[in-house]
């Protein structure tokens, strides 16, 4: 999910507490700020702090003037093979290829499990929005393949695009059955996305402010972790008792417009209902059923119809 979906879900969690709604009506924004901020905090901790301290053993910086897909494939294979040989994790960082201020040369890495190979392929120049820019492609080998000394066990997707901004990291981790598992951006969704972190955050807020604000903070962080669990990567829910992330349910992609909009919209409807039910006024015809049907079911139905129309042959 995108940040705004987590933030809105956190605010929606806060609105479920009548004390928070009352405080809001009295001019105190703190409960909702805590909800929103704690909803986004797990990603903030990862992307603004953790990743800058994540050490790597191999760093791949392709030449923008002459990118060589074979060298990229060789470097990834080197990391996999070294992990297998030494039986120790090897971390590799892949940099993006920036051709100009807003022009990138995307490439992708594919772990060919059946063929025991790593494939690398360079694409055509795009802008930060991912649109083709029609710029001449730099010279260099466009595709490459490197053989692996061991089998690969996938926990994420087989193909990873490396397109713009900051490139990904992989931790090549040897497994007990003699294979190597490439862990995608291992610094993400670890301790920050655990039940323990959510509880700790709640405890901190409860001690610093009020007990119900502790529940708001913990609930918002928990909503984030659970929403992420619907995706592909999963989270390390049981840190520190487990060292690895649990696999995600693979129901939605974090970049999905429909999933993000539905989450934000649903959170807004829930917030509205919570504010309305805590008010003294009662408007005829405005009840939970009508708000749910007209506010959520009808728009979701329209959205679904729109998606079907878009996907028609």
């Amino acid at each position: 999910m995108k940040g705004i979906a987590h933030f809105a879900a956190g605010v929606a969690v806060a609105s479920c507490f009548p004390q928070a709604v009352q405080a809001g009506a009295d001019g105190n924004p703190l409960p909702f700020l805590i909800g929103g901020a704690c909803g986004l905090l797990p990603d903030t901790l990862d992307f603004k702090f953790s990743r800058f301290f994540f050490r790597h053993d191999v760093e791949v910086v392709p030449d923008p003037l002459r990118p060589d897909a074979q060298t990229i494939a060789d470097a990834v294979a080197l990391a996999v093979n070294r992990a297998w040989e030494t039986q120790r994790p090897v971390r590799i960082r892949l940099h993006t290829i920036r051709l100009a201020t807003d022009v990138w040369l995307p490439y992708e890495i594919t772990f060919d499990v059946a063929g025991r190979r790593v494939l690398a392929r360079c694409g055509s120049p795009v802008d930060t929005g991912g649109n083709a820019v029609g710029r001449t492609e730099p010279a260099g080998r466009r595709g490459g393949a490197a053989n692996l000394a061991c089998g690969i066990k996938l926990e994420y997707r087989a193909t990873t695009p490396v397109d713009m901004l900051e490139g990904p990291t992989f931790t090549m981790e040897p497994t007990a059955d003699g294979r190597v598992v490439p862990r995608f951006i291992e610094w993400h969704r670890q301790w920050s996305h655990s039940l323990l972190a959510a509880a700790g955050l709640g405890l901190l807020a409860a001690l610093a402010a009020a007990p119900y604000l502790g529940l708001v903070a913990a609930g918002a962080a928990l909503a984030h972790v659970l929403a992420d669990q619907l995706g592909f990567m999963g989270s390390n829910l049981f840190f520190p008792f487990r060292a690895e992330r649990s696999a995600g349910l693979q129901r939605v992609h974090s970049e999905s417009a429909a999933a993000n909009l539905l989450t934000v919209w649903g959170a807004c409807v829930l917030i509205f209902w919570n504010l309305y039910r805590n008010m003294a006024v009662n408007v005829p015809g405005w009840n939970l059923l009508s708000v749910a049907v007209y506010g959520l079911v009808v728009p979701a139905g329209v959205g679904l119809a729109w998606r079907r129309w878009r996907r028609r042959p």
Partner: peptide
Amino acid sequence: HAHWVLWCVIAFMLMS
């Protein structure tokens, strides 16, 4: 509640 909506927008702007 308009005031805290505004605060939330500010918080999201800065955090995102």
